[in-house]
């Protein structure tokens, strides 16, 4: 029978590496997905997974058993992702507005009419478009958008975390949303 996270944490605190291994095996995919979403890079995501579990292991004594382990781990992973993003040279690798228009035009040229948006939402093509649009985001656009959209952090919090001014954070999010719109609007247009 699989032990609970709380039981595994208790054992891991006492030095039981197999218990910690169980936690790693249970949660590493979720941490990777979060890290990949935040960083947009497989290699960076792997590093974030490593740092997250190392940090969690070192801080196990601070973990309150009443808390939810995956929530706690998720928070550590977000912080590790932010640390990594802030630690890397600031390079704007995303597409510019000209690319954005071109990208939108390409998407529009593909025939999405006559199919219900609900059905298309689930299609692999939409997923591909989202993936492409994500790739077109700069590191900061991506981080700011992910923190706002998926993590529910306020713009002020994001500004502090990423070391940006409030306006810069807002504009990163605006640009990210514009790119998402360019990529997805043809697929989700009101029928």
């Amino acid at each position: 029978m699989q032990q609970t996270d709380a039981a595994a944490v208790a054992l891991a605190r006492d030095g039981d590496s197999e218990a910690f291994r169980a936690l790693v095996e249970r949660h590493s995919r979720a941490v990777y997905r979060l890290a990949y979403r935040m960083t947009g890079s497989a290699q960076d995501a792997e590093d974030v997974v490593q740092e997250t579990f190392l940090k969690a292991y070192r801080q196990l004594t601070r973990f309150e058993s009443r808390a939810n382990f995956s929530t706690w781990l998720h928070r550590i992973a977000v912080n590790c992702s932010i640390d990594l993003i802030r630690g890397r040279p600031h390079r704007e690798t995303g597409h510019g507005d000209a690319d954005l228009e071109q990208f939108g035009a390409t998407v529009e040229s593909s025939d999405a009419s006559g199919t219900s948006p609900e059905r298309l939402m689930l299609s692999t093509e939409v997923q591909q478009r989202i993936g492409d649009a994500m790739t077109g985001l700069s590191r900061m656009e991506r981080a700011a958008f992910m923190l706002r959209h998926f993590e529910g952090r306020s713009i002020d919090e994001i500004s502090q975390s990423l070391g940006l001014k409030t306006n810069a954070t807002k504009h990163s999010i605006f640009r990210a949303v514009r790119k998402m719109r360019a990529a997805l609007e043809p697929f989700v247009a009101d029928a």
Binding site: R21, V24, S28, R29, Y32, M121, Q127, I130, L184, E185
Partner: peptide, 24 residues
């Protein structure tokens, strides 16, 4: 709203079967 709802279905990267073992 529709665009941002669609973003929720952001694709997850494919991971190998032995991913957890590799992480460990």
């Amino acid at each position: 709203q529709r665009v941002l709802a669609a973003v929720e279905s952001v694709p997850a990267p494919a991971l190998s079967d032995g991913f957890e073992r590799t992480v460990w």
